[in-house]
Design a protein around this nucleic acid. Structure first.
Lengths: 143, 143
DNA sequence: ATCATTATTGTAATGATTACAATATAGGTT
DNA sequence: AACCTATATTGTAATCATTACAATAATGAT
């Protein structure tokens, strides 16, 4: 999906020093676009990098966010999740299985009133409900 | 805005036993629609109810959410906020002063693709940016 | 090779929230 | 009105994500 060189190029492009840890975090995010948490990234990379620190993960993610490499989102109020998909999209969280799905939408077509004079920098659209899989299981079990 | 009797009626209507603490929390939420946190509610009500416990606030808010009396939202990933305005609306958070504004929008007019087969139960629209006040201050100071 | 800057690490602290057990209260029943 | 059971409140301790901070390590420029 994204090799070491591509990751390094991307980091340099954005003005972020391409350390080994940063490369690995960026690659991980590109290989796991299901909105991982800091803890998930830490656990996964720790296997390969035993000396890795949680603090590094947090620092790295903060750096990525501030340099516009990833977006962060808090869907449930528990953990912050990170997303390398930067094109405008909505998030759907299934409250049964917890999976987060991306969906397409034209964010800029939303008509609002009451925001005259506001500088809008970011638009987050979060839907919650039940995903098709869980919906199907529920029907089958006859709950 | 909402007296004790009105609050009691509303609670009974929804099947929630109208204890003194619950009445006060519900009244507080109706008098402070700026999306208070559990801590803010606790601090404010503690003055009048010195024996009040933080746990009661959390229990009460969870009860309210599960009985559909209030909505909760996490805007910044730090604290959960509570909202008695149940009509569909969007939230705008100013990242300079932290204030949260409601704005009107037609949530159901948003066109999406990729959500076929999904049961949508809730739609949250969160914008971030700079509010007119902060925008104005910034201009004046010439930062 | 040297030096200053920046990144990583580990530990300790913070802050919101939850778990849990003891006590208190509410509402229905005699 | 007293009684009893179910439910609510309280306080403390635990949990979990995140941050603060200081020491060490690595990077890049001179």
């Amino acid at each position: 999906m994204m090799n070491s060189d591509q990751a390094a190029t991307l980091l340099k492009q954005k003005g972020v020093r391409p350390s080994y840890q940063r490369l690995r975090v960026l690659q991980y995010l590109h290989e796991h676009i299901g909105h991982p948490t800091a803890e998930e990234i830490f656990t996964a990379l720790s296997v390969d990098i035993p000396t890795l620190s949680r603090t590094t993960i947090y620092n790295t993610l903060h750096t990525f966010v501030s340099y516009g490499l990833v977006n962060c989102l808090t869907l449930d109020g528990v953990e912050t999740r990170y997303d390398v998909v930067l094109q405008k999209h909505g998030h759907f969280k299934c409250h049964r299985c917890g999976t987060i799905f991306n969906f397409m939408m034209d964010v800029d077509r939303i008509e609002t009133s009451g925001l005259e004079g506001f500088v809008i920098e970011n638009k987050n659209i979060i839907f919650t409900g039940i995903c098709p899989d869980c919906s199907f299981k529920k029907t089958k079990k006859g709950e």
